[in-house]
């Protein structure tokens, strides 16, 4: 009889330990920030206030709002966050009030789908108050946490970007010579160095400020036009302080380059 009681007690203790181990101290439904797709995530919806952006995989290609193709690297990064995110630490009500509520920081609501099934819904508050750049909640009424991607100990807040251009390829110019009708290069600090290139009947001509120039090398003009096939930029400066942004917007640029397409579109 004593042996039977001892075995029952041991089984009960083991079961209790297993249950305790599998439970999150914060409640699993309120503290799990990653999605677990059966195969793969196929749609991500981001919304903030009245703005909304959808990334959806269609025929193997990720589209921004169902239209233009998204940068693969940016999509891969947000998918990594959405499938691997773990809690780094809880956030106290005092810190949440100071960093989010008092600053009226509006969250980015994120919904993750596989086909028509919603896998996960989270709220991302971007903040500079921690190195991970975020405080997240599962719902408005649940506890806030700092979330990170194990093995990627850096700021993940900027990945939840609502602006379509963030997801587009990083290209300043992306036009074939056949698509270009004119180029205007303005050197704002040395106006005598400015020039224009105009296409007339499949031939490019070089112009200065006072009209068409003579004696230039047409091969160099053709080569210059070909450079506009792809001029990339490195990254968006979304983290630029507002004061710097205002100062730059009010100042004169070093160069101003305008490319007009055959259809009249200006870049």
């Amino acid at each position: 009889m004593k042996k039977a009681i001892a075995i029952t007690a041991a089984v009960a203790i083991t079961a209790a330990m297993l249950i305790m181990h599998s439970r999150s101290p914060f409640g699993k439904s309120n503290s799990e920030f990653h999605a677990t797709p059966e195969k793969e995530i196929t749609r991500i919806e981001l919304s903030q206030g009245n703005e909304r952006l959808t990334l959806e995989k269609s025929a193997g290609v990720w589209l921004i709002n169902g239209q233009t193709e998204a940068r693969r690297g940016a999509v891969n990064f947000i998918i990594r966050i959405l499938t691997e995110a773990k809690i780094k630490s809880p956030v106290s009500p005092e810190i949440f009030k100071a960093e989010i509520t008092d600053r009226e920081a509006e969250p980015v609501a994120v919904k993750v789908y596989e086909g028509r099934k919603m896998l996960k819904s989270i709220m991302v508050y971007k903040t500079a108050s921690n190195t991970y750049g975020n405080i997240m909640k599962v719902k408005k009424s649940t506890k806030p946490f700092i979330v990170h991607v194990p093995g990627y100990e850096t700021n993940i807040g900027p990945a939840f970007n609502i602006k379509p251009q963030f997801w587009q390829p990083h290209a300043i110019f992306n036009m074939l010579p056949s698509e270009i009708s004119s180029i205007r290069f303005e050197n704002m600090h040395d106006t005598a160095a400015s020039f224009s290139i105009v296409k007339k009947e499949k031939t490019y001509t070089l112009h200065g400020n006072a009209g068409q120039l003579a004696g230039y090398d047409p091969e160099l003009v053709i080569r210059y036009v070909s450079y506009f096939t792809f001029i990339p930029f490195e990254s968006w400066a979304f983290d630029m302080p507002d004061a710097d942004r205002m100062r730059l917007a009010a100042s004169s640029p070093l160069y101003k380059i305008t490319v007009i397409s055959s259809e009249g579109t200006r870049t």
Partner: peptide, 16 residues
């Protein structure tokens, strides 16, 4: 605003 490397934009920064 965006950040662009001189290396990338240099081909189109020419003087007359």
């Amino acid at each position: 605003f965006f950040n662009v490397r001189y290396f990338d934009i240099d081909p189109v920064l020419k003087k007359r």
